[in-house]
Design a protein around this nucleic acid. Sequence first.
DNA 1: CATGAATGAGTATTCATTCAT
DNA 2: AATGAATGAATACTCATTCAT
Lengths: 211, 211, 211, 211
Amino acid sequence: MSEIASIPSKRESTDDRRAAIARAARQLIVEKGVEGLRTRDIADRVGINVATLHYHVPTKEALIELVAESLKFEFMSQHVVRPRAHMDAMGRMDMEFVDFREMIEDRPDVMLVFSELIERARRDERIAVAIRPMLRKWRQILIDILSEGVRDGVYRADLDAEPAALMMMGAVVGFCRSGNKDFDGYERLVAELKRAIRNPNYQPQDTHSKD
Amino acid sequence: MSEIASIPSKRESTDDRRAAIARAARQLIVEKGVEGLRTRDIADRVGINVATLHYHVPTKEALIELVAESLKFEFMSQHVVRPRAHMDAMGRMDMEFVDFREMIEDRPDVMLVFSELIERARRDERIAVAIRPMLRKWRQILIDILSEGVRDGVYRADLDAEPAALMMMGAVVGFCRSGNKDFDGYERLVAELKRAIRNPNYQPQDTHSKD
Amino acid sequence: MSEIASIPSKRESTDDRRAAIARAARQLIVEKGVEGLRTRDIADRVGINVATLHYHVPTKEALIELVAESLKFEFMSQHVVRPRAHMDAMGRMDMEFVDFREMIEDRPDVMLVFSELIERARRDERIAVAIRPMLRKWRQILIDILSEGVRDGVYRADLDAEPAALMMMGAVVGFCRSGNKDFDGYERLVAELKRAIRNPNYQPQDTHSKD
Amino acid sequence: MSEIASIPSKRESTDDRRAAIARAARQLIVEKGVEGLRTRDIADRVGINVATLHYHVPTKEALIELVAESLKFEFMSQHVVRPRAHMDAMGRMDMEFVDFREMIEDRPDVMLVFSELIERARRDERIAVAIRPMLRKWRQILIDILSEGVRDGVYRADLDAEPAALMMMGAVVGFCRSGNKDFDGYERLVAELKRAIRNPNYQPQDTHSKD
DNA sequence: CATGAATGAGTATTCATTCAT
DNA sequence: AATGAATGAATACTCATTCAT
């Protein structure tokens, strides 16, 4: 289940090996970037021979696709775990920010690798194919929340959901890219984003909210 | 900078060569990324031998620094050209957006290369040294404008200038990174950013605004 | 042939497997040459795992020997099938040409693989050991026929059987090597070979001819 | 001009290097076959680094083409050196055999490499492109001599020049392929070939022969 | 008998960099 | 200042072979 460098664990199933390889590759991408990624290093970290690596993942291209897929899986499963249909727009947006913070705290490699792959996707169609759906889905979730929020009056009436979604994504991705580990900074950014979209005239009449 | 006006050709060509090399390198970074950058390709594009390239720029590291410097020069000179001290915050912010649009229209490589280098700066301190001042200066300019705007009442009173600046930078950089060439999209984004920070109660005709 | 009739499945399969492997190997040698021969490809074509292939044929060298043996078997059995002792030299030579034509028509791989192995035999003594007897036997058969034909006056009196045999072998092997599938060409070649050796003064109606 | 393994000879011109590489490659093909040819070995024998080898000959495919070309050059220049127009068919054919013997004695690699490439040409169109003209030219020369000889009555009237040419080529190539260094054998073969085509009724002293 | 996984020893090719001219 | 030639150190990928099950 978990081989961290030192544990040799001979003769694993391909699925387990591929998972371990994806994990090691992601770590290494964080450390050295996609350009600094070496099959040898990955094999070493997994504790297998390079040839064994190639047995499970035939080419480096396939390897990067594997990384992209592993990211996609992790990234997209997020919204499946906690059902949010019953919440209002603001609540769901809050959940987004909480989830995101959780991610950059617990699995900081996700966003860094994601950012690397975004850069690479511009020139590599195969990466683009794996990355674009993630961006698209994220954007759509935000657009949906924002649109609903505008309809319900919690967000500015003049809010244009599409660019607003891009703005939010750009803001948080930009934060992660900078390598900033300062979570206060993250909270200040989130607070500002919330103010940027909220309807200043909104009266939380029936629910009588706290703030 | 280093060439003495009276000596016309022999001595100054190094600087010319370096400029040409920087230009070619930037083009190639756009096409293939920093990771796909090859000294041979640069030399070919400049029309010189690889050995000659190394004569002018000794190592690849120095080359990337040269690129970063050339970017810095271009990026930072922007705000020097047009004096803006006399304008109000909103006007200056508008100028920012116009300048930025001009840049991505006229020299689309600037932002793409910039984005590449941001990614690289995370692992390469020498790049970081060249890149960080640019980000810092940009952020400071935005913070200044935003702070002034808040003071003058044109921007939201509850606007937190620092994260707001990051938000704006992230939004436009994110737009460029996506490789989007749709300038309508850019204008929609800019419009949304303006609404995101503006003071909804601001009376533009009135010079001394009220709450 | 080697499996004992009463034991039906378990024991005989190794021989069957080896035969199937030899067949697949020969096909692949025709397609890609000995140098392009891959154990994996053979295993795939036979429908077994590479490890299984190695169980039946331990090394690649053994594999090539197996191919050579299979060729030898096929090649040398030819002259056993039809008893020819009763025929005269010319008739037996005709049979040789007919047999050969049958072979390159029905099992075109035999000569192509043979030619590959001849080339390889020059450097690989183990292959030479398997190939040389075939060449030797073939040459001897031709020498015998030619010698008899000379004795009987059907072939030129000044014919030197040994080099003549080499000439004939070289001619037909050369034809096959070229990858030529034109059987008219083959017949023209054969006709020329026959004229090249025949005794121009031979009187066919006369059974006991003298010079 | 001549670097034989031990002489390092730094900084040669590309043409010289390519010639040396072709020479070394041919030696190695004789020793280990095309399939056993290793870029490293060639570089070692030339006395250069592998990377230097690739500088002069970019890929292995190009290397084999270079070998084929070098062969072509040597093989085809043969008939240019000594003008033979004034000779009669038999004389010219004799010259062919003498030339050929000279070749297998002085440059025994030529025919061995040639034979290797013939084998390879069946699957590699690029090699075929270099090899086929050689075969074609050789065949044409023989056909021309044979046709003239038939016309002049020195060769059999029923001789079919085309297959006869193939027969002769096959015979001598077959001789070389066998790795036979026995020149007596060669002479016996040649003698037999001559008898195989000659007109038994030809009167040499008589200039205007009769049927 | 069969197989999925593993591996050592290659193998061509790449690339930044250096050197002699 | 410029260049053709040269090179060391990598690098992804291959392949026959082995091992545990």
